Amino acid sequence: MAAAAAAGAGPEMVRGQVFDVGPRYTNLSYIGEGAYGMVCSAYDNVNKVRVAIKKISPFEHQTYCQRTLREIKILLRFRHENIIGINDIIRAPTIEQMKDVYIVQDLMETDLYKLLKTQHLSNDHICYFLYQILRGLKYIHSANVLHRDLKPSNLLLNTTCDLKICDFGLARVADPDHDHTGFLTEYVATRWYRAPEIMLNSKGYTKSIDIWSVGCILAEMLSNRPIFPGKHYLDQLNHILGILGSPSQEDLNCIINLKARNYLLSLPHKNKVPWNRLFPNADSKALDLLDKMLTFNPHKRIEVEQALAHPYLEQYYDPSDEPIAEAPFKFDMELDDLPKEKLKELIFEETARFQPGYRS
């Protein structure tokens, strides 16, 4: 834990890192770190609560700039109880001085990944967590956004079992017609939660990839272990087919990539493993919904509104309290091709509203 900075004593240090967030945020305490930044909790002297502050230093890398800009653009436009918001952003007053960006968010005690390492969940908890994931996802999908990296560590939890989806750095506007060349190379989302079509096709992607990830998360809540822990690309596919069985001819016809289709045709026939054999203690309604989410063919996979209306979630289902976005989200430009200098300018502009004396 960093010592509390005395008023006016300059930035606090946390594990050798400068955290320049005073005077409003003090009493910093280390939480963890990701690929390009550290997260601390801090005391907000204005709202009198502890908050989470993520320090991001992305400006050396085009990919990190892209992810940072995506996350900020999306989260500043989203407003939903099951999606983490941005409360404040701290950065230098000029673009030349801006080396880091500090993002202030609600402090959540833990995440689903940490929880599943230590606790076996009751059916009631599984049901409530799944409902909140789908409630947040309904809003995301209504904005025409794909999260693309749903996994237990991106689901934040607090002691009252509130759940918030975080990390929109890989999110995209849904565009089933656009052929994202190089899709697989830039697709760094965790393999275990990846839909089979991501490994088999490169053309376009749809909201059904997020539903697949939610199915993987439900299976993990039922058993405290990942359902498809593939060691590499082909191993991942083999794990999936080992449980779902061989795809039907109709399902194979959806695979545009001939090499991928021929690979699947070359494999020995596998039978589907019954879900109640894998999860003998699970609620039968939970397994019915799991089956509809972990469907090989993305066109037959359940959609988020149908999933919310499934009998497993009937005690929570309330369409009048499951809000959607006001308007579909649009990125003005494809960020993939922009140089990091341009992305830095866009991050600077996007964060201006939090600067003292800002006038829109």
Rank of each mutant, 00 (worst) to 15 (best):
A2L: 00
A3P: 01
A4G: 06
A5D: 07
A5T: 13
G8D: 02
G8T: 06
A9C: 00
A9W: 01
G10L: 14
G10H: 05
P11C: 14
P11M: 14
E12V: 14
E12T: 02
V14S: 04
V14R: 09
V14L: 14
R15T: 09
G16I: 00
Q17F: 07
D20M: 08
D20K: 05
V21A: 10
V21F: 11
V21H: 12
V21N: 09
G22E: 13
P23S: 06
P23L: 07
Y25V: 02
Y25A: 04
L28T: 07
S29M: 08
S29R: 15
I31L: 07
G32M: 03
G32H: 03
G32V: 14
G32I: 04
G32D: 12
G34H: 00
G34T: 02
G34S: 00
A35E: 10
Y36H: 06
Y36F: 15
G37K: 09
M38A: 13
V39P: 06
V39S: 04
A42W: 00
A42Y: 00
A42N: 02
D44N: 14
D44S: 06
V46M: 08
N47T: 11
N47A: 13
N47S: 13
K48M: 14
K48F: 13
V49P: 06
V51S: 02
A52K: 07
K54C: 01
K55G: 11
I56F: 15
S57I: 03
E60I: 01
H61N: 10
Y64L: 13
C65T: 06
Q66I: 00
Q66W: 08
Q66V: 11
Q66P: 08
R67T: 01
T68D: 02
T68P: 14
T68N: 10
L69C: 05
R70T: 01
E71M: 13
I72N: 14
I72K: 06
K73L: 14
K73Q: 13
I74C: 09
L75V: 03
R77D: 03
H80I: 04
H80A: 06
N82Q: 13
I83H: 02
I83G: 00
I84T: 00
I86S: 12
N87E: 03
I89W: 06
I90P: 00
A92L: 01
A92R: 00
P93V: 02
T94L: 12
E96S: 04
E96T: 01
Q97T: 07
M98V: 00
D100Q: 03
Y102T: 06
Y102N: 15
I103V: 05
I103R: 07
V104K: 09
Q105G: 10
D106M: 00
L107H: 06
L107W: 04
T110L: 12
T110N: 13
D111M: 06
D111L: 02
L112N: 02
L112G: 04
L112Y: 06
Y113N: 15
K114A: 12
L116S: 08
L116V: 02
K117H: 08
L121H: 06
S122A: 04
S122W: 06
N123H: 09
N123F: 08
D124G: 03
I126G: 08
I126E: 13
C127A: 11
L130I: 04
Y131M: 01
Y131Q: 01
Y131W: 01
Q132P: 08
L134C: 05
L134K: 04
I140Y: 05
I140R: 10
S142L: 11
L146V: 02
H147S: 10
H147Q: 15
H147I: 04
R148Q: 14
R148A: 11
L150D: 07
L150A: 04
L150P: 11
K151D: 01
P152N: 04
S153F: 04
S153A: 06
S153E: 09
N154H: 10
L156Q: 15
L156W: 07
L157K: 07
L157S: 13
N158K: 15
N158Q: 12
T159M: 13
T160P: 11
T160K: 13
K164A: 09
K164E: 10
I165C: 05
C166Y: 14
C166S: 15
D167V: 15
F168G: 01
A171E: 07
A171C: 01
R172G: 12
V173L: 13
A174V: 14
D177V: 14
H180E: 12
H180P: 09
T181R: 11
G182D: 04
F183Y: 15
T185C: 11
T185K: 10
Y187D: 12
Y187Q: 05
V188Y: 00
V188G: 13
A189E: 13
A189F: 08
A189C: 13
W192V: 10
Y193T: 06
P196C: 12
I198G: 02
I198S: 04
I198F: 15
I198P: 01
I198N: 14
M199N: 00
M199L: 15
L200R: 05
N201D: 09
N201I: 15
N201A: 07
S202G: 10
G204Q: 13
T206K: 13
T206E: 13
K207D: 10
S208W: 05
I209C: 13
I209V: 12
D210K: 09
D210N: 11
D210A: 12
D210S: 06
D210H: 04
I211N: 15
I211F: 15
I211L: 13
W212V: 12
S213N: 13
S213P: 07
I217K: 07
I217T: 07
A219E: 14
A219I: 10
E220T: 07
E220F: 09
M221T: 04
N224V: 11
R225L: 14
R225N: 01
P226G: 04
F228M: 01
P229F: 06
P229G: 05
H232K: 00
L234E: 12
Q236W: 05
L237N: 05
I240K: 05
L241T: 06
L241R: 01
I243E: 02
G245K: 06
S246D: 00
P247C: 01
S248T: 14
Q249T: 04
Q249V: 08
E250Y: 01
E250W: 00
D251A: 13
D251T: 01
D251I: 00
L252R: 08
L252W: 04
L252K: 08
L252C: 08
N253M: 13
N253Y: 14
C254M: 00
C254A: 08
C254L: 09
I255K: 07
I255Y: 10
K259D: 02
A260S: 14
A260R: 02
R261Q: 14
R261W: 10
R261V: 07
Y263H: 02
Y263N: 15
Y263F: 15
L265V: 02
S266F: 01
L267M: 15
L267V: 05
L267C: 04
P268K: 06
H269F: 02
K270V: 03
N271M: 05
K272V: 07
K272Y: 05
K272S: 05
V273Y: 04
V273H: 03
P274D: 09
W275Y: 10
R277H: 07
R277T: 05
L278A: 08
L278V: 03
F279S: 13
F279Y: 14
F279R: 08
P280A: 10
P280K: 12
P280T: 15
N281D: 08
A282C: 02
D283Y: 15
D283V: 13
S284W: 08
S284Y: 03
K285V: 07
K285I: 15
A286M: 01
L287C: 05
D288L: 11
D288K: 04
L289D: 04
L289C: 08
K292R: 13
M293Y: 03
L294M: 13
L294T: 05
T295G: 03
T295L: 06
P298M: 06
H299C: 11
K300I: 06
K300N: 15
R301T: 07
I302P: 09
I302M: 01
E303N: 02
Q306I: 02
L308G: 06
A309F: 02
A309I: 00
A309Q: 05
A309M: 03
Y312W: 05
E314C: 00
Y316A: 00
Y316H: 01
Y317I: 10
Y317P: 03
D318G: 03
D318R: 04
D318H: 05
S320Q: 05
E322C: 06
E322P: 00
P323M: 06
P323D: 03
A327R: 04
P328L: 13
P328R: 06
F329H: 01
K330L: 02
D332P: 00
D332K: 08
M333E: 05
M333F: 05
M333R: 07
M333A: 08
E334I: 00
D337F: 01
L338S: 10
K340M: 15
K340F: 06
L343G: 10
L343H: 11
L343M: 13
K344S: 09
E345H: 03
I347C: 05
F348R: 10
F348K: 12
E350L: 02
E350S: 01
T351G: 07
F354D: 14
F354G: 12
Q355R: 06
Q355I: 05
Q355M: 12
G357Y: 00
G357M: 13
Y358S: 11
Y358A: 09
Y358W: 12
S360E: 14
S360G: 12
